[in-house]
Amino acid sequence: MRVLVVEDELRLAENVARSLRESAGYAVDIAADGQEGLFLAESNPYDVVLLDLMLPKLDGMELLGRIRQSGQHTPVLVLTARDDKESVVALLNAGADDYLTKPFDLGELLARTKALIRRGKGQPSPVVVIGDLELNTVNRTVQRGGKAITLTAMEYRVLEYLVHRPRAVVSKTELLEHLYDYNWEKFSNVIEVYISGLRRKLNQGSSRQLIRTLRGQGYMLQD
């Protein structure tokens, strides 16, 4: 999963990014002003955007409006210092999906971010079950047929993304875009490495192939 944090208070942005990377294994991009935020949001497919309202160059509300005008469905979580009813109503009406008032709790931010991603992908439950595969997004564990499977961080992130798009063809580019942040060199062959590792671990004790390869198109998770 890939998250965009638009926040001009650099230290706060870095703390949030670190927390998302460490506790959820998300790829995180940081934008320090509204213009950069808009550029990143328009040029990359994020799974959620964390947006501060008071931003230099381009105001948070305006940025939100532009994102929604361009037809993006990316969930937006607004970080605001104002908690009066009027401004909360205004930002929800402007297209925000949720809000948190500063100073917020990092744990709550994490939980809300995860919830927004789940809902954005039409998957309200934190435990995703596909066939005999069970993926718990809260404590990041995977089971197949009741047996726990230990995955590396990167393997988990690939599987988590695939699990949220079941029975859909997911291209390598899509995987790269959602698993790496902006500063990362993207090489499609690393995806192949993770997929083969995943297949090996998931197929232990089971004959049925979960991840199908569609040549020239990508991968599909099936039950």
């Binding site: 706060l12 703390n15 500063k102 100073p103």
Partner: peptide, 20 residues
């Protein structure tokens, strides 16, 4: 409002220190 931002920064720094 002005105090909330520095408090948010401070809080997030300390919380992320304690996360692991």
């Amino acid at each position: 409002h002005e105090l909330k931002t520095p408090v948010a920064v401070l809080k997030s720094t300390l919380q992320s220190l304690l996360q692991r």
